[in-house]
Design a protein around this nucleic acid. Sequence first.
DNA 1: CGGCTCCTGACAACTTTATGTCAGTAATTC
DNA 2: GAATTACTGACATAAAGTTGTCAGGAGCCG
Lengths: 222, 222
Amino acid sequence: MRRSDRLLELMTRLRDGRIHRAEDLAARFGVSVRTIYRDMDTLAASGIPVEGTRGSGYRALDTLTLPPLSLTPAEIEALQLGLAIVAEAPDPDLKAAALSLTEKMDAALPSEAPTDRDAALAVYPFSDAARGFSHMSTIRAAIRGRQKLRLSYRRPDDVWSFRTIRPLQIDHFGRVWSLTAWCELRNDFRVFRLDLIESADILPELFVDEPGKSLADYRAAG
Amino acid sequence: MRRSDRLLELMTRLRDGRIHRAEDLAARFGVSVRTIYRDMDTLAASGIPVEGTRGSGYRALDTLTLPPLSLTPAEIEALQLGLAIVAEAPDPDLKAAALSLTEKMDAALPSEAPTDRDAALAVYPFSDAARGFSHMSTIRAAIRGRQKLRLSYRRPDDVWSFRTIRPLQIDHFGRVWSLTAWCELRNDFRVFRLDLIESADILPELFVDEPGKSLADYRAAG
DNA sequence: CGGCTCCTGACAACTTTATGTCAGTAATTC
DNA sequence: GAATTACTGACATAAAGTTGTCAGGAGCCG
């Protein structure tokens, strides 16, 4: 039996909630006790929460282990968004689980901090995820592609407007999704509620960060 | 340089989007070409989407790799719930990412198919996650513990009722969360909307699956 | 076609890792 | 205190994994 197979089966075996003595495990696998101790070291080093108590034996917390996964940026985004949503659930168990998992993933992801360019989607506490999604695809594409957008927008007071904007970031806080952008009509930053955007069309026109018009400027001013 | 270090740097190097020839990589790492081919095999076997084209070279899709993670059942649940929510987003990119990720995780999780006992939370398409969460914690605990619940429930037509139920499963479809249970008042299966549950108290009374009253029976009859 | 490059198999040399044995320490339970 | 069991270090040996070399096959492109 190969070492890796033994480690795998050890994990499975430890998960039954009972206490296991190193000597029994050694006999079961036909290896020496010393080897079992070394295996436990290896498991612990891999993040499996196995706990040995002198005088009694080993037990493992009830966990499942996910193998290494290779994720596309979109999948990472979906994952983070999903967890952020669950983290707002009133169920404290779920909420705690989502938070601790988010923490684990943050620790696990490469330190390359997400750049502004990648952070096209920022997640905030929210309560009603469903509304206002309809133009998200277009808008995200525009943010990524640095393309200007032509918006047809209905203000909360039912006044209509048409404007060209430089989309910067999609956020969600409070109840709705919103889009932070530089508005070329007002010549200032504006935040648009996604559910009030009637139409959004990508213009062929590209834009670059100009001093005073970038996301960093918005945050600095915010 | 250890093999594992080389593999890690290979991954990083491949992620730059350019095409790399095996010979160049071999020279860079001071190993033979044959070793590079073997490394590519190893990476592919680990799920890293590296693609070699005869006549041109290697390139890797833009991905990040998550190391093995050890997750508690609650975290797995949070993860699956979050992805199920995102999978309903109207944004096709996000939706596709969530679905493919769900698939990956399903494939990755141990083959132990979730039992009915573990499947206390089934996820369906949904649109308004926020409402009706307030008793979820209690209810999930009761499902897990096989404990009866005392419900104070307001029907959609505003008629109040009090009943003892055997909680079986929490679902979400359409717009609200709901609880499938065996109702001891009606002596039949009933589905309750969580947002209409006024109070839910766990009774000390345990229950066991009786023929005709289990989740399997409900599904069979469904 | 010819040139490029990926790709595969086999085998021997080499390097690393895993393992058993032994000797002893430390916490826990009774 | 006695029994029990987890732990640690050292070292020789056994096992496993890694690598280079060589010989040849297979898809892609101009």
